[in-house]
Amino acid sequence: MQMSEPSPIVLVVDDEIQIRRFLRTGFELNGFVVHEAGTGAEAIRSATLRPIDLVIVDLGLPDMDGSEVVERIRSWSSVPIIVLSVRSTEAQKVHLLELGADDYVVKPFGMAELLARVRVSLRRQMRAASGEPTVKVGPLTIDLAVRSVMLNDKRLTLTPKEYRLLQVLAQHAGNVVTHQHLLKEVWGSIHVHDTHYLRIFVRKLRQKIEPHPDSPKILVTELGVGYRLAQSGAEAENGAEAPAKSES
C-alpha cells in the first residue's frame, strides 16, 4: 500500500477461527487493518459501529446464512462485499451477486487471489467516490465521460449496443457482472434469459478489443455466472505494489 493513503479496514466474517487467523495475517502483511466477526449478528453490529472499507463474508455462518448478511449490510451501505463460496454452486453465486455482493472467491483460495479481488473492489469504490471517468484494462482505455474506447491509443468504433455492454462491464471493472444484469442493462428486462444474445455480442466485441479473440484476456468469462473486465489487482493499484501476483 502507498504510505500516503490510510490503511483500508477490512471486516472478515467467518466462523472458522483458522480461516480468520490466516486472513488476518495475510491482510496485515499487505497493510490492511482487520476486524473479525464469527457470526452474522456480530458482523452486522460491527459494520454499523465502525467505518469499514470492505467486507469478506463466508456463506456458512452458525446463526444466519451469509446471503442474509449481504442483504442486511447492503440495505444501508455500499461498502464492497466479497463472498467466500464453494464450487459448483453457480446459481447461488448469481443470487449473491444480485443481492448486492461485489464479487466471490471460491474456497479453497490463495491469499493472492483474494487480495487481487479486494484491490479491484476497493479501486472501484474509490473511482465511484471520486467520479474518475476512465477505466484502463491492459491496452484498453474506456472513457465513460466522453464515451470513447481506445485500444493502444487507437480509437475503436463500436456499435451502440457494443458500447453499452462494455460500459456496464467498465462500471464494474474487475468485478464479475451477471448475465441477467448485462441483458437487462443492454437489451431490457424482457430479455434477461436470452443468454445467446450476450454470447454473440461478446464474441463480436472481443473481435474488436482482444489481441487474441480465441483466448480472451480482457473480457473474460465466468462460466455459469457472467463476465468481467479482467482488471488485475496490481493494475487497480496503479502498479503501486505487486508482490504476490498470479500465485494460484
Partner: peptide
Amino acid sequence: RTPLASILGAATVLSAA
C-alpha cells in the same frame, strides 16, 4: 475440505511472507 481451506490459505500467506 474445511481444514484444507485453512491449510491452503495459510500456506499462500506464508509463501508470500
